[in-house]
Amino acid sequence: MSHKICLDNIAIVLNQPRFSENIGAAARAMRNMGIRELVVVHPYKLDMERVTRMATHAASDVVADIRFADTLQEALAPFGFVAATTARLGGQRVVHTPPVMAQKLIPVSHENRVALVFGREDRGLSNEDLRLCHALVNIPTDEFSSLNLAQAVMVMCYELYTATLSEKRPFSPRLASRYELDGMYDQLKDVLIRISYVNPENPDYWMNHIRNFFTRLRLRAREVSIIRGLIRQVNWYAEKRYQDGLAEGKAATKQPKEDGTPQP
């Protein structure tokens, strides 16, 4: 089964909207987010001219296909799953946030027609209305909980739309293999002993700290290669300085004595 929501099976249901402009704005929000089925229940003083003006030409197809119903029960008859928006919390209600609801609707939407119901602007959905629904969703707000109807429709349509987007697989680079890590640790321990950074009598005590540090970083193969290159350079430089010191010592022993004879 697809891990995306099926927008073709999603409908927005406006129950007793009081303002024709809100119907048009809701249609526009739906069209923006790829949802095309709009059901309007017993609107108050419907003015299709104001609906069309607010919807704009872009959502004219949504407006043209509006299905009108006299009651919410009649409107919801064709749907297998119904989610209702509500601003009221508490009691025994199990209320989901919009993102959670969108995720819950992904499997449901593939085999069922789904309705998302919005109540009238001034008082929302009644308890009787809510009994017709399978689940509740609440749009979290700050101190002022009342949203404009069209704004609420846009928020929910956005969440449903983003649930249709292909889930991006997180980038997973090739991590360093155990063989690569062990080689790096052996090389690092050797050079740290040689430069007297760790106690040669008990090098693993300090190496355990270093291993824990690198383990938290989850080193990639390329990063291990860079670290090993740095270790080689430190080792080369230390060896070079050692050889330079030997050469300088030999040169000093060959300096002539004050009487002009060379040192033995």
Rank of each mutant, 00 (worst) to 15 (best):
C157H: 03
I210M: 14
F144L: 03
G91A: 08
A238D: 14
L217F: 07
I12H: 04
K240T: 10
M54L: 14
R228G: 02
M33N: 08
F214N: 04
I226P: 00
A11Y: 05
L130F: 11
Q255I: 15
Y44Q: 13
I195Y: 05
R18A: 14
M48Y: 08
E201P: 00
A176L: 04
P99C: 00
A221C: 02
R131W: 07
N32D: 00
R18L: 13
S225N: 14
E21W: 02
D244F: 09
P203N: 07
N112Q: 15
S2W: 04
I23A: 00
M184A: 12
A69I: 08
T86V: 01
L7N: 04
W206S: 14
E128G: 07
P107L: 10
W206I: 09
N148W: 04
E167M: 09
N208M: 05
G245P: 00
K4H: 13
A58E: 13
M207L: 15
M33Q: 02
Y161I: 11
D244P: 02
K4W: 01
D70H: 13
V95L: 08
D190Y: 03
F171Q: 08
C6V: 13
G119D: 07
G260N: 09
A152T: 08
E49A: 09
S172F: 01
R36A: 11
E223G: 01
T85W: 03
K168T: 06
N32G: 01
M30A: 03
R241D: 05
S126G: 12
P99M: 02
V234H: 11
S145K: 01
L175F: 08
A251D: 11
E258W: 12
L246N: 01
I227K: 03
P256H: 04
A64L: 01
K257Q: 14
E239F: 06
R131G: 13
A77L: 05
G245K: 12
I23F: 01
P256W: 12
R31E: 11
R18Q: 13
D122N: 12
L38M: 12
A75L: 05
L181V: 13
I193S: 03
L105N: 06
M156C: 07
R222I: 11
V155Y: 04
Q103V: 09
E74Y: 03
I139L: 06
M30H: 04
A77T: 03
E111T: 15
L192Q: 02
L188H: 11
M30K: 09
Q255V: 15
V62G: 07
V153L: 10
P173H: 03
P173Y: 10
R169S: 12
W236K: 12
K168Q: 12
L188S: 03
R93C: 00
A221M: 07
S146Y: 07
T71D: 09
L125T: 00
R194C: 00
R67K: 15
R50K: 15
G119R: 06
E21T: 08
R28N: 05
P78F: 07
I231F: 08
P78I: 08
G90L: 10
A26G: 07
A102K: 08
G34N: 05
Q151A: 12
P78K: 04
L14R: 01
V198E: 03
D61C: 02
Q243N: 14
Q92N: 15
N9V: 02
G90F: 11
M33E: 04
V108N: 10
R228A: 02
P170R: 13
Y185L: 07
F214L: 15
N208G: 08
I35V: 14
A25T: 05
N127V: 06
H209R: 13
